[in-house]
Simulated scan of single mutants.
Amino acid sequence: MTNPHQTTRYNPAELTDEELVARANRELLHTTVAYEELMRRYQRTLFNVCARYLGNDRDADDVCQEVMLKVLHGLRQFEGKAKFKTWLYSITYNECITQYRKEKRKRRLMDALSLDQDESEEVVESSINIVTDRASLDRWLVHVNQVDREILVLRFVAELEFQEIADIMHMGLSATKMRYKRALEKLRKSIDNPF
């Protein structure tokens, strides 16, 4: 008599994606054999898609790791209405867009912080590396007052235009731009002279 809790041995490479998804859903609390086979099948293409979309291997690798985690945690919700491959690339596409927007925010912040054309690119680059980490950005934002902090956050995190910020904060457009410029100068000084 066989034990119902005993898993039957199988060769994951011989199963279809759909069969692997079904097995992974049954096994995930105990083993990751089927999940690992799914990821092995798509790992190279997944990386290539990300690298081409994002333009560099470092970001592509980060996004691939994030996608694999989302698949691991989301596999139970996968209903099979679309092919697994379609679902996987939908997650990949969304993660690439998220990463692209993060990089875009970094570039906007770097452009804004590099107002002084005399500074070397290396100094600006090191400044931005400090600021782009969310915890570090929060640490630098304590150097500006609450209103200026809100303007900077709305501009760089929410990516709003100045008119939208002015409307939200019930300020005139020119006053908003002036506060933004002053807040940016304070932020740059605190980055250049951290102590």
Rank of each mutant, 00 (worst) to 15 (best):
M1W: 08
T2L: 04
T2D: 04
T2G: 00
N3E: 11
N3W: 11
Q6E: 13
Y10N: 02
P12E: 08
A13E: 14
A13P: 00
A13V: 11
A13W: 05
E14H: 05
E14I: 05
L15A: 02
T16V: 04
T16Q: 10
D17H: 08
D17G: 09
E18A: 01
E18M: 04
E19T: 05
V21M: 10
R23G: 07
R23A: 13
N25W: 06
E27G: 04
L28H: 15
L28S: 11
L28R: 15
L28F: 15
L28V: 13
H30V: 12
T31W: 09
T31K: 10
T31P: 00
T32N: 06
L38D: 03
M39W: 00
R40A: 13
Q43A: 13
T45F: 14
T45S: 15
T45Q: 15
L46E: 06
F47A: 11
N48M: 09
N48K: 11
L54Q: 02
G55W: 07
N56G: 07
R58I: 01
R58F: 10
A60I: 08
D61K: 13
D62F: 04
V63W: 05
C64P: 06
C64S: 12
E66I: 00
M68K: 05
L69A: 02
K70P: 07
L72D: 05
L72V: 00
G74C: 13
L75S: 11
R76A: 14
Q77I: 12
F78Y: 15
F78V: 07
E79F: 10
E79W: 14
E79M: 01
K81R: 14
A82C: 13
K85W: 08
K85R: 11
L88Y: 01
I91R: 10
C96D: 07
T98W: 02
T98I: 10
Y100G: 05
Y100A: 01
R101H: 10
K102S: 07
D111Q: 10
D111P: 07
L113V: 08
S114N: 10
L115Y: 15
E119A: 05
E121N: 11
E121F: 13
E121D: 08
E122I: 00
E122M: 02
E122D: 08
V124R: 13
E125L: 04
S126C: 05
I128V: 11
I130M: 12
D133K: 10
A135Q: 10
A135C: 06
A135S: 03
S136L: 05
L137C: 07
R139V: 03
W140T: 08
L141Q: 07
L141D: 08
V144D: 06
V144T: 12
N145A: 10
Q146N: 15
D148P: 12
R149E: 15
E150L: 14
V153C: 09
V153G: 04
L154S: 12
F156W: 07
V157H: 14
V157W: 14
V157A: 07
E159D: 13
L160Q: 14
F162R: 03
E164Y: 11
E164N: 10
A166H: 04
H170C: 08
G172V: 04
L173E: 12
K177F: 09
M178Q: 15
Y180N: 07
Y180G: 03
R182N: 14
A183G: 15
L184E: 02
L184H: 05
L187E: 01
L187D: 01
K189L: 04
I191F: 04
I191W: 06
D192Q: 14
D192S: 13
D192K: 15
D192R: 12
N193T: 09
P194H: 13
P194R: 01
